[in-house]
């Protein structure tokens, strides 16, 4: 899958844009980039609108990244998953800990630590 694109938004928010299939190969490709993001950012919006497929291996990478950010008192949310991907997130209960937003402004406001 293409490497994630990281966009800097007001409020010191990082918008991480993921695209393509987060399958076995995609999850492997994401390990390092997500680790770097988890180690360097505390306000993160993970944009899933371009993700076509997500299963447990990809979820694992997102969970590890989110848990690292949350352990540093940071904030992370998910943005605009397509229905099939959202079903995977809700079925596993991940959405209870990493909230899902479908509106970007609301997602950014939810994670901004420095105000927007």
């Amino acid at each position: 899958m293409p490497p994630p694109i990281v966009l800097d938004l007001p409020g010191n928010v990082a918008k991480v844009v993921l695209t393509g299939r987060i399958d076995i190969e995609g999850a492997r490709d994401l390990d390092l980039p997500l680790s770097v993001i988890a180690g360097s950012r505390r306000s993160v919006v993970i944009d899933l609108s371009g993700v076509e497929f997500l299963a447990s291996l990809g979820l694992r990478g997102i969970v590890v990244c989110a848990r690292s950010i949350l352990s540093k008192k940071g904030k992370v949310v998910l943005l605009a998953p397509v229905p099939r991907v959202e079903e995977v997130l809700t079925a596993t209960g991940i959405d209870r800990l990493i909230p899902i937003f479908h509106d970007e402004a609301a997602a950014v406001a939810a994670v901004a630590l420095d105000g927007v």
Partner: peptide
Amino acid sequence: PPAGPAEMAPGGLGLVLMRR
């Protein structure tokens, strides 16, 4: 289902998805 970040284990999700 995880009740908090500390319980957000990355494993075990596959079984949930298989059954779903």
